[in-house]
Amino acid sequence: MLDDLDRRILRNLQADPARSIPDLADHLGLTASRLSRRLEKLREGGVLRGSRAVIDWQALGYAVEVSLRVTLDKTNPRAFDEFIPAARQIPEVLEIQTFLGQVDVRLSLIARDMRHYQSIYREKILYLPHMADIEALTHVARIKANKGLPI
């Protein structure tokens, strides 16, 4: 699986993903070519799946975050298959999770303000197929949001 060097590389990438390969290699006591080979091995093994820009949606004027807990009409065998693609089409939906239990799906969405949220809810959410019940939870504070893994 992972050796100590792989774990050191991953910890450093999590801490500063924008760090250049030569700088990271120097920090780890490696050559840039050896670090590049290790990174390629981690990519090929599926451990590293690319890099992405993390955009602060609040800096773009979105001030409201809502979690919608949805129960689907499970009498329809295609409920999940039709609900999920329709929910993906709503640009303000940032995340879709499915569950086993009373709640079937959780949608995490953002809006500029409550008026915008109301518009999204009335014009888009309520038209999603096969919903039997929906509960909205307005986000107040993020207490812990650790994206790094304990490597």
Rank of each mutant, 00 (worst) to 15 (best):
A87K: 04
Y121G: 01
K144L: 09
A63F: 13
D4I: 08
I55C: 07
Y62W: 06
N12K: 04
R37F: 12
V93G: 04
A87I: 05
A132W: 11
L68S: 01
L42A: 03
L48C: 14
G45D: 05
A145S: 09
Q58E: 12
F83Q: 05
L42D: 02
K124F: 08
Y62D: 01
L107A: 01
F99G: 10
D104T: 10
K124G: 05
A53F: 15
T98A: 06
E44V: 11
Q102Y: 07
P77D: 08
F83K: 01
L128E: 01
S51Y: 11
V140L: 09
V105A: 12
R122V: 02
L109G: 00
L10A: 02
L13E: 13
P77V: 12
P77S: 10
Q118R: 14
P129Y: 05
L94T: 09
D4G: 13
S33E: 15
R88S: 06
K41I: 02
D56V: 05
Q118W: 10
Q58M: 06
I90M: 05
D16K: 13
R142D: 06
H116L: 10
K74C: 04
G101C: 09
I151K: 02
L100K: 05
R52D: 03
A132T: 03
V54H: 11
G45S: 14
L13G: 14
Y121M: 04
D23M: 04
G29F: 12
I96P: 03
A132H: 11
R115I: 12
L24V: 09
A18K: 13
P22D: 06
N76K: 04
G29D: 05
D73I: 07
R112M: 11
A145L: 04
Y127T: 08
V105Q: 00
T71H: 10
